[in-house]
Computed example of a mutant assay.
Amino acid sequence: MQDRAHATRKALLESAAHLFVERGYAGTSVNDISDHSGKTSGAIYFHYSSKEKLALAVVREQFSTWPQLAASYASPDMPPFEKLIVLSFGIARSLNEDVVARAGARLWAERRGIEAAVPTPFDAWALSVTRLLAEARTRGELAPGVEPSAAAVTLVCAFYGLCTLADDLPGGRDWRERLDHWWLLILKSLQADPDPAALLARARARIPAQP
């Protein structure tokens, strides 16, 4: 029974995510989700009680995987800037290729039209980035005058904007190429002894190959 309920919730979540990506929150109805998922409207209300609750579940699902991703790169042997770059590629891949993550990003952007408090990723992200920048400062790798907590907020907001607005950017470049260019620009200001290309190459070599 629990396995069936879990499968139903997953099917509803994924169907809702597909529709939220394509049509947005306002353009998606409970009946649309029912038709797409093959589940009844009653099943939606039983598991999530409202469209708002289902949207919140999509956003929380988007954010829930990122702490696990960060834990994969917790090794003290990896320099902090390399960790930051590797993690950014993992999150960017999620935001570009995973429908639930894409839906979560769109729902956050449309949060003012949702009658519920939509959680934000920025506080947790900024804290993690602050810690990495502080570690880089301790190692003498952070540029003088860069304050970790203030820089972290700027980095997180700029990164999230780059990822979520990527479809609307001119040029049609692959998201990996866009992120490469972004890091080459950003690292010139972050590194104590700037060598962005070499650092980016070292970090990119640590990124696991896609199956």
Results as ranks from 00 to 15, higher is better:
Arg4Glu: 13
Glu22Trp: 02
Ile114Phe: 12
Ile44Asp: 12
Val129Arg: 00
Arg93Trp: 08
Asp193Met: 11
Tyr48Asp: 07
Ala17Ile: 05
Phe63Ala: 09
Arg131Gln: 15
Leu190Thr: 01
Asp180Phe: 09
Val153Trp: 03
Tyr73Arg: 08
Gln191Leu: 15
Ala192Ser: 13
Gln62Met: 14
Ile44Arg: 01
Glu147Trp: 09
Ser37Tyr: 01
Gln62Asn: 11
Arg9Cys: 02
Trp175Thr: 07
Pro119Gln: 09
Thr154Asp: 08
Pro76Gln: 10
Gly38Val: 06
Asp3Thr: 14
Gly145Glu: 02
Leu132Ser: 13
Gly145Pro: 09
Arg173Trp: 08
Thr164Leu: 03
Trp66Arg: 12
His18Gln: 10
Phe63His: 13
Asp98Ser: 10
Pro194Gln: 07
Ser72Gln: 14
Arg9Gly: 03
Pro211Ser: 13
Glu61Gly: 02
His36Trp: 01
Leu162Glu: 07
Asp3Trp: 04
Ser15Cys: 02
Glu61Gln: 15
Ala103Tyr: 12
Gly172Met: 05
Gly38Tyr: 08
Gly172Ala: 04
Thr28Glu: 04
Phe89Asn: 04
Glu115Cys: 12
Ala136Tyr: 02
Val153Cys: 04
Ala43Phe: 00
Tyr160Glu: 10
Ala209Ser: 13
Ser50Cys: 11
Ser50Thr: 14
Val118Thr: 09
Ala205Leu: 07
His47Cys: 04
Ser29Val: 02
Pro211Glu: 10
Phe89Thr: 04
Pro148Glu: 02
Trp66Gln: 09
Gln210Ala: 15
Pro80Phe: 03
Met1Arg: 11
Arg60Trp: 05
Arg131Tyr: 02
Val21Ala: 04
Tyr45Arg: 12
Leu56Gln: 06
Leu54Ile: 08
Ser75Glu: 12
Ser88Val: 03
Thr40Asn: 10
Ala92Ile: 01
Leu155Lys: 00
Glu97Gly: 00
Ala152His: 00
Ala150Thr: 14
Ala209Cys: 08
Ile186Pro: 00
Phe20Asn: 05
Lys39Tyr: 15
Gly140Tyr: 11
Ala136Thr: 05
Leu199Ser: 07
Glu52Lys: 09
Ala117Asp: 15
Phe63Asp: 00
Ala136Gln: 01
Glu14Asp: 10
Glu147Gly: 00
Leu12Ala: 07
Ser88Met: 07
Leu127Met: 10
Arg202Ile: 05
Gly38Ala: 10
Ala16Gly: 14
Arg173Val: 02
Arg111Asp: 04
Trp183Lys: 05
Leu169Tyr: 08
Val156Phe: 00
Leu190Val: 03
Gly113Gln: 14
Ala74Thr: 11
Pro148Ala: 03
His6Met: 13
Ile186Asn: 00
Ala70Thr: 10
Tyr25Asp: 04
Met1Ser: 15
Met78Arg: 13
Phe89Leu: 06
Ile91Tyr: 07
Phe122Tyr: 13
Arg206Glu: 13
Ser29Ile: 03
Glu52Asn: 13
Arg106Glu: 12
Val146Asp: 00
Phe122Ser: 03
Ala124Asn: 08
Cys163Trp: 01
Ser34Val: 01
Thr164Val: 11
Ala7His: 06
His181Gly: 06
Ala43Asn: 03
Val146Trp: 00
Ala158Gln: 08
Asp174Thr: 05
Asn96Glu: 12
Gly27Trp: 01
Leu155Met: 06
Lys83Pro: 04
Val86Ala: 08
Leu179Trp: 00
Lys53Leu: 06
Ala7Gly: 07
Leu133Lys: 04
Glu82Gln: 13
